[in-house]
Computed example of a mutant assay.
Amino acid sequence: MNSDDVWQQFGVTSWPAQRARLRAVVFGCLSLTVIAAGLWWSGAIIPHIRWELDDFFLHADVDENGVLSAFVHIDVENEGAASFTLTDISAEVPGLRFLPADTAKEERPAVTVAPGDLERLTRRVVITDCAAVPHEPQPIRFTYETWTGTRSAEVTWDSWRLNGPEEDLPIAWQRALAGNVCNQAVKDWS
C-alpha cells in the first residue's frame, strides 16, 4: 500500500488525478464558450439583420373611407449564417400604425430569408394623425422564427436625411415617412 491509496481511502485523490479532472472541466467550459460564441456570431441564435426602408416608391393613398395610408417596402438582408423567418412587424408610434399583411393584395405575411439573401417585405402603414407622429426615432418590433424558436426584438431604423440649402439634417424615420405621406395627400387634394 502506498500513500496515494491511503489518501484515496479518505476521499482525497492524488494531485495528478485532480489536475486531470480540472483540465477536463476547463476544457469543457472553454469548448462550450467557443460553441456558444460561434452560434451567436453566425446568427443562429439571434439573426443578424440589415434593414432598409425604401422610400423611392412611397406614395400616399386615401381610400373611400378617408383613411390616409402608404405602402412601405422594407428590404431585409440576412447577414448571418442561419436562415430566419420574419413573421410580424409592428410599432407603437403615436399617429401611425402598421397593418397586418393583406394576402388579397399579394402581401406576404411571413418571409424566410436565407443566409446572405435579401428579401423585400411590403406593409401598409396608416397615418392616423400627421401632427402626432413624434420627432424622436421610435423602435419597430419584429417577430422572427429560427431553429431555436419564436422571439421578438426591437430595432430603430436609421434617420432619413432632409436636404437643406447648406447641409443635410437627420430626421426620424417615422416623422419623415408621415411628413412625406401627409404632404403628398395635401398636394393631391389641391
Rank of each mutant, 00 (worst) to 15 (best):
M1H: 11
N2C: 13
N2P: 09
D5W: 01
Q8P: 01
Q9E: 14
F10Y: 14
G11T: 07
S14G: 14
W15S: 12
P16I: 02
P16A: 08
A17L: 08
Q18A: 14
R19G: 12
R19M: 14
R19T: 09
R21C: 05
R21A: 06
R21S: 09
R23V: 10
V26C: 02
V26G: 01
C29L: 15
C29P: 00
S31M: 10
S31E: 01
V34D: 01
A36D: 00
W41C: 06
G43F: 02
H48K: 15
H48M: 07
W51H: 02
L53I: 09
H59S: 14
H59I: 06
V62T: 14
N65R: 14
S69A: 12
A70S: 14
V72A: 03
H73M: 13
D75R: 13
D75H: 12
G80K: 06
S83M: 08
S83K: 10
F84T: 09
L86W: 05
D88T: 11
D88V: 08
S90V: 11
S90K: 09
V93N: 05
V93A: 09
F98S: 01
L99F: 00
P100E: 11
A101F: 00
T103P: 04
T103D: 06
T103N: 03
A104W: 04
A104R: 14
K105W: 11
E106S: 14
E107I: 04
E107W: 03
R108K: 15
A110N: 06
A110H: 07
T112G: 01
P115I: 05
G116F: 07
D117S: 15
D117E: 15
L118Q: 10
E119K: 07
L121M: 15
L121W: 15
R123A: 08
R123P: 07
R124V: 12
V126W: 07
D129S: 13
A131C: 01
A132G: 00
H135E: 15
Q138V: 10
P139E: 03
I140G: 01
R141S: 11
F142T: 00
T143Q: 06
E145S: 05
T146I: 05
W147G: 03
G149A: 04
T150C: 02
T150F: 02
S152I: 00
A153T: 13
E154H: 08
D158Y: 07
S159G: 06
S159F: 06
W160M: 09
W160R: 13
P165Q: 05
P165W: 01
E166T: 12
E167N: 08
E167W: 08
D168I: 00
L169M: 10
I171H: 04
Q174S: 07
L177C: 01
N180K: 11
N180T: 15
N180H: 14
V181L: 01
Q184V: 04
Q184C: 04
A185Q: 08
A185I: 08
V186Q: 11
K187F: 12
K187E: 13
D188K: 13
D188G: 07
W189Q: 14
S190Y: 03
